[in-house]
Design a protein around this nucleic acid. Structure first.
Lengths: 209, 209
DNA sequence: TGATGTGAATTTTTTCACAGCA
DNA sequence: TGCTGTGAAAAAATTCACATCA
């Protein structure tokens, strides 16, 4: 069994979300097969089975998958059965949007601390998370067992914050700042780049069909 | 010359951003070659040349690229030399964050209208964009020549808004709602899924190294 | 029979190697 | 000589075809 490509992981997350909705609608008894799942998600059905096959056997031949069981299995594969502690760096509008998004809580992704350099915000509590000065990242990260950091600060501050996070021992970072961050090999960095997404659309609209 | 893969377009956007910073720092005279560019961006240098080669010849053998010229060319390829009119659907915190992000303006991506069903917001103006009722999408989209729509509404409202946008003739959509939208083939849809990104990190942290 | 799971085939993307030009 | 641009090779991802099993 080969190592799954990273994009398979993203698709597992998609399957998981679908299964949750599906169970809510149809109950946990109904079975679902890869063709139906593929149809709903507009994905090739071979791909779904291939993605799952990297991790084991979850279906029943001639029948399909039991959604509740498959959901649990994917949850486990993705590491969502245990919870993770997150910190949010930068509490502007984007930070507020992330804090407000309840979907994270459901997956046991808890924002437990906020770092912001604005003195007026430090000490306040938003959605159950207290705001600390960026200087205290190392201290707070250790005390609160922070696993994952979200960078939502302006571009000019992003690398400095990243360095602090890495120094504090955080090994997974989601970066929203539009800049290429330098991180060591053992730190996992994912970037969400809103401008790049829009530029893709711009290209689509202007390129000849 | 073959069709470029979609991911090349995303990388062009990255090159563009880097060139802008580079020109600011070094001035438009200094040349840059693919190896340096690759080094800064942590990308293979063959890939950079290959990405560019899909669109033509932009460098000088033995020398490299003139950043100002390359920037203009990429701008043109990506369709950013003409501007685009955007609308924002849903004005919560995420919407506010998008409105506040000045990077879009620099690329001539202008949010010219906002659609929100909250009656208290309708009629108000944020960052130069007026808030309209979702019912008036068709009308406003035509009047303001809207090219691209951003969906930042709750999951439950996303498909309905998408249908309205498509009906209004909009052919490019950036979707932030955590749901798979159904759109016709001729509409370009890109999704930004924050939960999926975090789940990738969760997988990384929990998978054996 | 019907749907999974998977090795093989195909397609796509990345990387390489070098011809070609300043 | 030095670096681009590109066909070819290699690697990776997707799709296919089918053996397998309930």
């Amino acid at each position: 069994m080969k190592r799954p490509p990273e994009i398979s992981i993203s698709r597992l997350a998609i399957y998981l979300r679908f299964l949750e909705d599906y169970i809510k609608e149809k109950g946990p008894q109904a079975t679902i097969n890869s063709r139906e799942l593929a149809h709903f998600l507009d994905i090739n059905h071979h791909q779904i089975r291939k993605d799952l096959s990297y991790f084991g056997k979850f279906g029943e031949r001639g029948v399909g998958y039991r959604p509740e069981e498959l959901k649990e299995k994917i949850n486990n594969i993705l590491g969502l059965d245990r919870g993770w502690n997150l910190c949010l760096c930068g509490m502007g509008n984007l930070g507020l949007a992330l804090l407000a998004y309840q979907g994270f809580r459901l997956m046991r992704l808890d924002i437990v601390a906020i770092f912001d350099s604005d003195k007026k915000k430090i000490g306040k509590v938003f959605q159950g998370a207290k705001v600390y000065s960026p200087e205290s990242i190392a201290l707070v990260a250790k005390r609160l067992n922070i696993d994952i950091a979200i960078i939502a600060v302006p571009q000019s501050a992003a690398q400095k914050i990243a360095d602090k996070l890495i120094h504090a021992g955080i090994r997974a970072i989601l970066n929203f700042a539009p800049v290429k961050l330098n991180v060591p090999r053992n730190v996992k960095l994912r970037n969400v780049d809103l401008a790049t997404e829009l530029i893709n659309l711009s290209y689509f609209l202007s390129s000849p069909k």
